Amino acid sequence: MQVLYTAEVNATGDGRNGHVTSSDGILDFDVRTPKEMGGGGEATNPEQLFAAGYAACFHSALRSVARRQNTLPLVEGSQVQARVGIGPNGAGGFGLEVWLTVTLPAADAAQAQELADTAHQVCPYSNATRGNIDVHIEVAK
């Protein structure tokens, strides 16, 4: 693979209760354990950051697929919501599960499903997670 860009982020502090900073200084904030996992929840957390990255990347893949298929009008007003769940994996560690909800108001149900399925095949996050964590794709109107 020819690398086109490399993101670099440094984490300091106490893991989930620490600070993250990107090498370019754009990211520079605290992270905290969510209340649901026994933390204070007063800052973002790794699952929110993963959800943000996956939603943005999948939405970009969706638009790229539509562009290649000459169906760009079908993604007008589109959005992607990512929900990332974390929990015990039964082997002493933790695992993730992702739900992506794709909203394509300009497409009918079949068109929306085809675009979402194709985007799932080209999205780098989908390719990285395939076979490793459960990713559920749903199309909403």
Rank of each mutant, 00 (worst) to 15 (best):
E47G: 13
E47K: 08
Q111H: 03
Q48T: 08
G38E: 03
E76H: 09
F58C: 06
F29R: 06
F94W: 13
S126G: 12
V75F: 11
A140E: 10
A119S: 01
A43D: 09
G15H: 12
Q121K: 15
R16N: 05
L100F: 05
F58S: 02
Q111T: 05
Q69S: 15
G18I: 09
Q113G: 02
I137T: 15
G15L: 15
Q79P: 08
M1V: 07
L4I: 12
R16Y: 00
G39I: 04
V20H: 04
A7G: 14
D108S: 05
S22L: 00
C57A: 01
A91I: 10
A128T: 03
G85L: 07
E138V: 15
G131C: 09
L74N: 01
F29M: 05
N10A: 13
K141R: 15
D24H: 02
E97N: 04
S126Y: 10
S22C: 09
Q81I: 15
T103P: 03
P46R: 06
A128L: 06
D108V: 09
P124T: 02
M37Y: 11
M1E: 06
L72N: 01
A107W: 13
N45R: 00
P73T: 08
Q113R: 15
G87P: 08
K141I: 04
A140P: 12
A112C: 07
I137G: 05
P124K: 04
E76R: 13
Y5C: 06
L104C: 02
A119H: 00
R130T: 06
H120C: 05
L74K: 12
T6Y: 00
V135N: 03
E36S: 14
S126W: 07
G13K: 02
L49A: 11
Q121L: 15
G87T: 04
D14V: 03
Y5Q: 12
